[in-house]
Design a protein around this nucleic acid. Sequence first.
DNA 1: ATGATTCATCCA
DNA 2: GGATGAATCATA
Length: 799
Amino acid sequence: MQIAQVIVDVPTRQTNSSYSYLIPNELSDQIKLGMRVVVPFGKRHITGFVVGIDNSTEFNGKLKEIISLIDLIPQLNSELLKLSDWLASETYSFKINCLQTMLPGSLHVKTKKVIKALSSEVVEKYPKIFNGNNEIEYNSDQLSTEDISIILDLQKQNKVSVNYELLQNAKPMMINVIKNKLSNEELKSKVNEIRKNAVSQLKLLDLLQSNPNQELIVSKVIKMGITMDAINNFVKKGWLDKYLVQKQRNPFASKAKKTTPFSLNKSQQNAVDHIVKSIENKSDTTFLLEGVTGSGKTEVYLQSIDFALKSGKTALLLVPEITLTPQIVERIRGRFGNEVALQHSSLSDGERFDEWQRINSGQAKVVVGVRSAIFAPLENVGLIIIDEEHDSSYKQGENPRYQTREVAKWRGKYNHCPVVLGSATPSLETRARAHKGLYKLLSLPTRINNQALPEVSIVDMKEEITTHSGGISSALQVAIRKRIDRNEQVILMLNRRGYSNFIMCRDCGFVPQCPNCDITLTTHKDTHTLNCHYCGHRESIPDKCSNCGSKRMRTFGMGSQKLEEEVKNLYPDARVLRMDVDTTRKKGMHEKIINQFGNHEADILVGTQMIAKGLDFPNVTLVGVLNADSALAFPDFRSSERTFELLTQVAGRSGRADKKGEVIIQTYNPDHYAIQLSKIQDYELFYKTEMRVRHLGNYPPYYYTIKLTASSKIETQTMQTMFSVFNFLKKRLSSKAIILGPTPKLITRVNNRYYYQIIIKYQNEPNLKDTLNQLLNGSQKKGKNDIQFSIDNDPIDFM
DNA sequence: ATGATTCATCCA
DNA sequence: GGATGAATCATA
């Protein structure tokens, strides 16, 4: 008898290893590694992943049998199963969470418990429980304790049955088809059996004769004027078969126009040559492709992918969420056609499910997608590319908190293939590794067509504030006017959504705060509410101060909504579009705004940082940054890096075609190095300067970091837990490890929970993993006290 | 996670 | 002493 090792869908410390199950004979031919199964677990039926199939087991107790298979083909290959182990260990997460993270969310399957009444008597006797239904879902938090005991009683008396059903989100799309069972000669002879006035049947007979041995889609047949009755009639007579087949959804509205490779300049060619050689030699080199904005990195990607495909391999191209625009997707599809599969949050569940199946079945050879696409079930990977590798969306914010770059390197090693990290402003870690020779540096120092980088000027807002009350400096106002008169386009970035930052009472200085979080509420004028951007709390804008009763409540600061209003006032002749979280919440709006602006249906695009990256509008000759300091203001070691990166990226949106671009940066810190260096757009100098700062502060890339966070509803309890964690770490780690904290988080209270953190900075701590795992094991016991504890390896920030 | 079991506490 | 609810345990 064969035995399967199953990781069950119970995300806890104690169940974080595989359980052995007998494979019943009828499943032994079908069951494969990486399939999902339903197994008995205690009294319940739950789902799990098959991660091993053996002839024996370490487990000495009595084995149970697998109940059923969920999949017909494995959803995860052996590479991904192995990767999940590494991922669990690296991110201190449960294996089941890692396995599930690798599948598109729509594939997550849960079991649900269903109580079925065996007689109508029971249903009538307990209307409160059954509510007239024969079957109800058993949900212990929705049922009262008495109801639960009644149900248990009924179960003992055999008056109800308990069943488990699979709860599945995305299913393959099935359509009805019919297929001829008879030969054409036989069909001809059947004409006599049909009444002469049965028009529909005669038509169907004709249709079948002209389409021998073909599957015909029922809905289309009906559109031709043939009735369902006619079809059913033929089925009954045994003349044709009617059955369901799977149809693949197509997320692409139209066929992409075929594009041909561009010719490369010298440095692009050099980059492609290196990458190609590495694919050929099966070397797992990591490349840093450092190219200024507009230097043609995408073409390098495409030609390298092309080589991988021609060598019979597959390729992965990852892009940040916001840069996965129709623009780039079209370009890739134009080159590789139907071999491309897309994995993106803008797809519907069904579309994503089908795209995943196309990858899993080997139909798609190139996967383009966001962070989670790094887990695409490709076989024989020949190349992995991460575009804009510095982008913060490559780090997952919840468990498993993985860094996509590191997963990419793991898959590169496993597949013996190169990994290409591309950016105009690489992360310091990546650039430093290239400097040390761990990564191979490939640079693209010039823009294609040798366009000059845009001219950047800085406006000191400290001088400005006395002359202008609005957020747009006079220099920027003049520059915008010039573009409108010339019929060119302008992008204005303001890194703050909403209308204004906050409202304050002019008389007593009172500022409305969120009742659940330690944060000021933000004004939203369209909904006339004060919103909390952390917990979602909303309240209406008060007409008088709730502290002193004064009616002099005024707005302060500026958000994207207010900027849009101001721009419209200043330039009544200009057409203005706004793009931020609020205007793009609806599906497809992001694309719509981009297309409208691209078609020059608007002159000015106002937006938050989501307009900073990847967009390519040839007619944009001016970019204005309204508050360059917003990222600098965060008390975080990466704030300079983020500021420099954001300014450089947004500046790169200007002057991408033949017209020269201009960039105006407004700031209150004109002398800060991140701002000064983005003026001259010198990444290398920024890198050197910032490395000195990091060195002095013992920050990455000189030190590795780990962030520990605890939260609970009682502040003192959170604090005490963290102090004991601190003491434990102090004892176990070497004296060289730097342990910061515990400190309250920047926003200590969110949704009425108090958050405290400890940061560990270290260079070499062989004990660390073991120590942290012990902490996790210990934290489980305290879990009942409502303390949540989490570990973030290589956090994106210290906030 | 959740159903089963043990433990602790309260009141008769 | 027995009922009740909370903490703890096991799940193959």
